[in-house]
Design a protein around this nucleic acid. Sequence first.
DNA 1: AACGCTACCGAAACAGTTTCGTATAGGCTA
DNA 2: TAGCCTATACGAAACTGTTTCGGTAGCGTT
Lengths: 346, 346
Amino acid sequence: MPSIREVAKEAGVSIATVSRVINNAGGVAPGLHRKVSEAVKTCRYEPSVGKRSLTSISLIYPEGVWIGSPYDSACVQGMADAMRETNFDLLLVDVKRDKLASESLKQFFTRKGILGAVVRSTSSARTAISQWAVEGLPLVVLGDHFDCPKLPFVYAASTAASRQAVEHLVSLGHQRIAFAACDRDDGDHLDRLSAYRGVLESHQLYDEKLVCRVPPHRLDGAQLLRNMLGMSLRPTAIFIADPLIAVGAINEAHRLGVRVPEDLSIIGFDDCDTRKSVYPQMTAVCQDATVLGRAAVQSLLSQIESAPAAKRHATTSEAWFEVGSTSGPAPHNPARILPSGARMNS
Amino acid sequence: MPSIREVAKEAGVSIATVSRVINNAGGVAPGLHRKVSEAVKTCRYEPSVGKRSLTSISLIYPEGVWIGSPYDSACVQGMADAMRETNFDLLLVDVKRDKLASESLKQFFTRKGILGAVVRSTSSARTAISQWAVEGLPLVVLGDHFDCPKLPFVYAASTAASRQAVEHLVSLGHQRIAFAACDRDDGDHLDRLSAYRGVLESHQLYDEKLVCRVPPHRLDGAQLLRNMLGMSLRPTAIFIADPLIAVGAINEAHRLGVRVPEDLSIIGFDDCDTRKSVYPQMTAVCQDATVLGRAAVQSLLSQIESAPAAKRHATTSEAWFEVGSTSGPAPHNPARILPSGARMNS
DNA sequence: AACGCTACCGAAACAGTTTCGTATAGGCTA
DNA sequence: TAGCCTATACGAAACTGTTTCGGTAGCGTT
């Protein structure tokens, strides 16, 4: 375990200079800075304990902390819950803002006092996350899953339940079934899309014009609904793979006087228990993000305690399909409905 | 600024022992431990920087981290939002679990690297919080308000809006108006209760049998509704000062076939935008907890930057009353409704 | 009385940070 | 061009706090 003094000897400078470089304190000439950085690497220097102990488990957002969605809220809640019995604190970290390009993830963690982290991924952060994986720190990926052998993922597999949901609609006589998902496309959403597509293709009902991505907010759900209902051959059912969008759509249906499910069936998605707050109770593919947050922390704890070899590749639970009252038989003669509420028979 | 060595001299022990005492590392005889603790106090010792810098702003829960309610979720979100432009991280801390009885809040903060904290208060934590106030650290209290000159509070004043809400019900002809609130009683809820009581007393309608406190969960809201509807002289309207309870009650009404607002008016409370997810859209007293979270952080930042003299006693916004579709004229002959759904005319 | 065990505590070694002083390069003035 | 001045870069040393290691005192056991 090399100390700052060894690095100093290696680089031919004083320990003060090394300290400055490590902490990015400035006042070091660019040339020397590079030289010291290299020495840090060749010595495999790691800030030692004694500086301070690592007391936090962190939820890190690769590109900006964002706890707006029910999913994130529930995850945080689950994490806090799982950490109650430990001695760690929960730290919310914005990597994009705080991590210096020149430092390794390990250095970053030590600087912040982070022992392990749950990473909230989205597809655009995948490359960065994959690079972090090689450092062997305790990490767990949440909110996305992709192929990276070194990383453990925690997610609820939603393919099967999504298939059930779409089959449910088909069995109710729906021929034109639309799909909407959050525009941030991660592995979780892709699963749902491919399940949708698979089922519809097997019934020769797939139409790519009925697939859309919208931002994950209620107002966008309302907009989505208006768009869908105004189409000349409008869908009679929508599978919406995001809770806020689904709720927004259902509310907008009420506002337009569209009866759910008589005029339009909606199957939503639920990360916690939003489906129980809407009326009629939402038919939905469900997962419990609280449980995911807990599982993520537990995975971290086991990584921390035992050898990192114990890393399991993925911890999955299964999403489930729950029939509520927003899905029903397809209408025989679905009227096109304009944003004004006016109906046009097609 | 005294160092650990001065304390050692004062107590007549070695610095190692002082270090052990400070970190509660054990292996120190009780007598000596007390002696050193006293020396720490008389020297006014404070762990120095160099140990590490203070990088976090914390949300501290006096008695267990709990982010289950929409209020807390929204606050966290608002805090994270406000901290995006700063260089601080958000740390969630459980004081009950982590703070040693023997250490001061300042020591606790230094140990954790906390610069300032938003305190999520409830009435049972008030005495502890008041004691912390005298240490002069950057603190802001959220979720409760009470009389403590040294503490800045951030909350939305809900008295006026609550009065409006109850007056609204009275003006619709309701004579028996119930009140329900979360059983955790903090200043925010007390305001709403006293507003309710004030209005009803001025109309000679107050009946203490119609006031109840229930745990802040949906299922308890359902239970509440069954209790209320089964009463022999049942209320025709309920003012529910907690969002989850309100939603639970509305859902249960649907389940029992009780028409809202024809059979029963419900006015709820909303911390963010839950009212927009329920159907019919909930008449509610509203506050935006996201804004409160942001304001709390801003107050902290101003305390940190400028002198602590700049502490304002309280930052309040106003809650507002929003009429939705769950409130309407009082029914002429309100039937008593049993949990089975059976109706008994009274 | 001898032995062994354990808890307690200090000396010293250690890790890292920060201050303070100095040297050097480069610019400005005479 | 010489002289001076200043900012910057860097090291020595002082400092803060932690941890290890070894010694000692107290106590029970044989």
